[in-house]
C-alpha cells in the first residue's frame, strides 16, 4: 500500500510537516517494500491561495491510498475524500515514526477536517 506523508525534508528521518497544503515535501512510502519517493511541493508552497486543494489533488494523482499529516483543512479534506484517500491527521515525529504509528494502528483516521480553513 502507498502512503503519503507530509515532511519537512526529503528523507524518512525528516520531521513530519504539520501543514498539509504548504508542506515542504510529500514522501510517498510503499509500506510493503519500505521504499519511498520524495516529491517537493514548491508550487503549492508559494501558491496565492488554494494550496490545500492543489496539494490534495497532487496526493491523489501520486496514487496514495492514505495520507499522514498534522492538520487538514476542510477544502483539502473534501478533495482527498473525493479521491478516496484515507486521512490520518495528528501524525508526529519523523516520517519513519509516523509510518510505524500508522502501521501499529495508533493513528485514527479523520471523519472530517480537523482544522478550520484559512485564507492564504
Amino acid at each position: 500500500m502507498k502512503v503519503a506523508v507530509t515532511a519537512q525534508g526529503a528523507d524518512l528521518d525528516s520531521p513530519v510537516d504539520p501543514r498539509f497544503g504548504r508542506a515542504k515535501y510529500f514522501l510517498l512510502v510503499d509500506t510493503d517494500s519500505g521504499e519511498f519517493t520524495a516529491h517537493d511541493n514548491v508550487q503549492n508552497l508559494n501558491a496565492l491561495q488554494g494550496a490545500g486543494i492543489q496539494a490534495a489533488q497532487a496526493v491523489v494523482n501520486l496514487g496514495a491510498q492514505a495520507v499522514l499529516t498534522g492538520n487538514v483543512g476542510p477544502k483539502a479534506f473534501t478533495t482527498l475524500q473525493a479521491g478516496q484517500v484515507a486521512i490520518y491527521p495528528h501524525a508526529s515525529g519523523t516520517v519513519r515514526q509516523a509510518v510505524e504509528q500508522w502501521r501499529s494502528g495508533n493513528l485514527q483516521p479523520a471523519a472530517k477536517a480537523n482544522v478550520e480553513g484559512h485564507w492564504s
Partner: peptide, 23 residues
Amino acid sequence: CSQACRFGAIACVGQQTLIFTEL
C-alpha cells in the same frame, strides 16, 4: 480547468471535478 485556475479553486480527482467557489 484545474491547471488553468491560478486561484487553486478547481480539483480534478478520480471521476470528480470539485469547484471551491469561495476561491
